[in-house]
Design a protein around this nucleic acid. Structure first.
Lengths: 232, 232
DNA sequence: CCAAAAGTGTTGGGTGTACACCCATGC
DNA sequence: GCATGGGTGTACACCCAACACTTTTGG
């Protein structure tokens, strides 16, 4: 035990540090989160949030996104901090601290790689049993998603650049599990778009008089808007 | 170098992990944050957020509060996560990841202890030069304070159990650096109190017809309220 | 005695909410 | 043809913002 000297030696105790990802995708109808089937112990075969151990030359967010790319090939459009996990028994191997980030993507599937045996997009309202304390994390993540959508327009990163207000409406009603009034919803976002320029009507695009109108996400106006109003 | 074997050995690289605190206090007129003067290198003699390295048997929040108590003797009334710091060069000694928490106290001074050479409460709008990346953290912390006050009534933990609406008003105008209309402000919080029961008028307490009325913070009603409305 | 601070009403505008109705599409 | 989904109008209620005046307190 004392003989084989290990390569990393320190004067004081240090925990392992990991970074995990909650990646959201909206397929036009349901909101989904990306999970990987673990290829290694512990929890081999169980579903878990993609992530892994921090490396020496990267920040936590960089580490989270590197692991995400290695395990699934996915590079998100928007990423922010969610929380940390530091329960003393959360990993059976050794003490692991984890920083969790949440991200938005669109139009991606991903491919299982690295120590992910498989990957799958799960409906946020119908998740499988999860490894580690990830069930707890997902509760926080969905709560944060709801708060975040309410107070900051980051969720436009979940939609195509050109989308319809019914698309947006379906996303909201799905996340909040509550049908809000379509008319009021549209009034709200049309007014929001008119004031901020974050969403602009696409000039024509009209096929028939009653088909949904298209709007375009204006990222420049968005960045300007969140500069003075951002929550996260 | 290879001879003196260090006590903690690992197969993979690990960073140091620390936990820091942003502690807010409201003295009835100004909002303040607690800083310590560092007694040791690095940044010896510079002001910094209280905090220190994580120990083996505690969560990040427990570690932050333990360090806070050791360095200042203070035990907060409310604590929540703020952010993580993981820049690769943020500590000149070695790679250090830090989790930052923010807390509310009232009616405390604190006493310098452990490796704090001195402690002092600084006006949030007039901070000294800070060690590490703590200036950046304080920017996030003040932004979070503003958002948090707007959306969640945690800030009652900054006030005495019995307080007046002018007290509350001074706190808000100070934090937002903006004099809001007193009448509207009072109406808002009286209505809030009537609906939620989080603040209740103290029955009499009237000395003269025009002296400020007292209100009491009802923690039970508060806990019930945030259960369905909390942001953080 | 005067300045600063605290109590009190009212009104107009904007935003959210709750409806009802029409039209187009697709099974 | 009927159900579903999308566009539009209106009326009401509530919240918020913008105001002025008086009284009390304290230096």
């Amino acid at each position: 035990m004392g003989e084989n000297v290990k390569p990393f030696q320190y004067d004081y105790w240090r925990p392992s540090v990991a970074a995990d990802n909650v990646v959201y995708r909206f397929d036009g109808k349901t909101m989904q989160v990306l999970l990987i089937k673990r290829g290694n112990e512990p929890f081999k075969g169980k579903w878990a949030l993609p992530g892994g151990f921090l490396e020496e030359n990267e920040t936590l967010q960089e580490g989270a996104l590197r692991e995400l790319k290695e395990e699934t090939g996915i590079v998100p459009r928007y990423t922010a901090e969610l929380c940390t996990c530091s329960g003393v028994d959360r990993d059976p191997r050794t003490r692991v601290i984890s920083a969790v980030f949440y991200s938005f993507v669109r139009d991606v599937e991903g491919v299982a790689g690295d120590d992910a045996a498989d990957i799958c997009w799960f409906d946020i309202h119908n998740l499988p049993e999860l490894a580690f304390d990830h069930a707890e994390v997902m509760e926080k993540a969905i709560h944060r998603l709801r708060v975040s959508m309410k107070y900051s327009p980051y969720f436009f990163y979940l939609l195509d650049d050109v989308f319809t207000l019914p698309d947006l409406w379906r996303m909201w009603t799905y996340v909040y599990k509550k049908k809000m009034d379509r008319r009021n919803f549209q009034k709200h976002w049309i007014a929001f778009g008119a004031v901020t320029g974050v969403i602009e009507p696409v000039v024509d695009s009209s096929k028939s008089p009653r088909s949904p109108k298209f709007y375009r996400f204006n990222e420049a106006a968005y960045l300007k808007y969140i500069k003075s109003n951002s929550c996260w």
